[in-house]
Design a protein around this nucleic acid. Structure first.
Lengths: 119, 119
DNA sequence: GAATAATATCCCCATATGGGCATATGTCAA
DNA sequence: TTGACATATGCCCATATGGGGATATTATTC
């Protein structure tokens, strides 16, 4: 075995900074590949690749207009992300106390100092 | 250049399915490495590595108890994820019409049928 | 049809990294 | 001190994949 193939889910797709930048740009409206490339400041061919990944994960969609392709956000693909995050935080709030974080921080600091651990 | 090093941000950390599983489990409370390994069904050594990644990104924290280590969620690390997602969807809602998705779907389907494209 | 523009692909490279395995490190109990 | 248990690390491998450059593909215009 080796590194697992992960580019098949939205979470991994969003893991790449460049792709997040692309999404941020697209969030402001339909855009051209060229425009995206300029905005993200990287070669067009690379942007096309990132767009392909985003398409496969359905975070993005596109339509042809002349010899141009207008890319846009596909809301459907974003839902899973929101859902997971929401459920995660819900579970957390349900199982962790409010003061927990604060207490843990103090505790961790104290321990670190006492034992000379790096923080 | 080559593949960019990305394991330095929470987004990438969450990109891995196993790590998400670990987070899901931890969301229900402090847990032992061993327990996590059993829950996620993968070797302890691997879980330790994933935990290390999650720690570096501050999605997780731990404290020693005897010869055991209790891992817990670190809420602070989750905030960036929520923030980005929220801002993204906010921007989208601000720039995309409600009917857009529906219209685009119809359009895409029609075009595909017309041109014999795969969908 | 030829030339040009916009994208997508293909090929190649470098490396990050998920996973497996053995071992080191640390802690507690007898 | 020795032994057992819990974790973390180091080493190695296989591969996914980000990035670069050139080329194929498709559409537009003259």
């Amino acid at each position: 075995m080796a590194r697992a193939a992960t580019t098949t889910d939205a979470f991994n797709a969003v893991g790449d900074p460049t792709r997040r930048a692309v999404l941020n740009k697209l969030a402001t409206g339909e855009t051209t590949v060229k425009a995206l490339a300029e905005h993200v400041n990287c070669p067009q061919s690379l942007v096309s690749k990132h767009l392909k990944v985003l398409r496969e994960v359905e975070l993005v969609r596109c339509r042809s207009v002349g010899r141009t392709r207008l890319y846009r956000i596909d809301r459907a693909g974003i839902t899973p992300l929101q859902t997971w995050l929401t459920e995660l935080t819900t579970a957390i709030n349900q199982h962790y106390d409010r003061l927990d974080d604060y207490i843990q921080t103090l505790k961790a600091d104290g321990d670190a100092v006492r034992k000379g651990e790096p923080r």
